[in-house]
């Protein structure tokens, strides 16, 4: 499977935020999107997830067959928000997402164990700390299978130990032939991940955007 973006540009509120961005990710590869605030990292991820329309350019997922016709169908999107309801327990939240998203992979209790929340699955989500909430959201990536993970600042609020565990999870996902596109300031602990540097615009001109292999 291969995810390719060609001469992509994105706009927000009628303004072009980035333009002419091209990259490709193949199975087992990770792409780290880096850049200062306002460079369009989140916009790029939202375009990949099909939540925003690209202002120009093309996006394609090839080799996904009938099961994964496009990126939207084949992706997990972990945004700034955790997509969990504070009034429901952690388990209820995850069971819902597993049933709603389909393609069940691991069971909810296994996923909770993987992120180290096995003891507090019965608690309402609202009682969890920021880091625990993020881990519960990461557990959502595990309960349903998706080959493409789109992660927006995935480690925000995580401590060192959890970061390490999450890096291990991502490596496992890549070993199984998955793909990761992550927007981040922090190192994610993925060796050999390629980087896409997005520049902030100045004076209304586009800063050059380069993709380093």
């Amino acid at each position: 499977m291969r995810l390719a973006a060609e001469a992509l540009s994105g706009e927000r509120g009628g303004e072009v935020i980035f333009s002419d961005t091209s990259f490709a990710v193949a199975s087992g590869e990770a792409l780290l999107v880096k850049g200062p605030n306002g460079a369009g990292k989140t916009t790029l991820l939202r375009i990949l997830a099909g939540l925003l329309r690209p202002a120009a350019g093309r996006l394609a997922l090839t080799g996904g067959g009938e099961q994964w016709p496009d990126i939207r169908a084949a992706c997990h999107y972990l945004g700034h928000f955790n997509a969990m309801k504070t009034a429901l327990t952690v388990e209820e939240n995850l069971v819902f997402w597993q049933r709603f998203l389909g393609q069940a992979q691991t069971t909810v209790s296994e996923a909770l164990e993987t992120v180290g929340l096995e003891d507090i699955g019965y608690l309402p989500f609202g009682y969890l700390s920021t880091g625990q909430r993020r881990r519960a959201a990461i557990a959502r990536l595990l309960v349903s299978h998706r080959p493409v993970w789109l992660l927006d600042e995935p480690t925000a609020g995580l401590d060192r130990a959890s970061e390490g565990r999450f890096a291990e999870l991502m490596r496992g996902h890549l070993r199984e032939g998955g793909m990761i596109v992550a927007a981040t300031h922090l190192p994610l602990g993925l060796e050999g991940a390629r980087e896409l540097a997005m520049g902030a615009r100045r004076d209304g001109h586009d800063a050059p955007i380069r993709s380093t292999p």
């Binding site: 009628g14 004076d203 209304g204």
Partner: peptide, 15 residues
């Protein structure tokens, strides 16, 4: 649009 552009230009100069 022009106002937004001039706001951006000011920020660029600052940077």
């Amino acid at each position: 649009a022009m106002r937004r552009m001039s706001a951006r230009a000011a920020e660029g100069k600052l940077a």
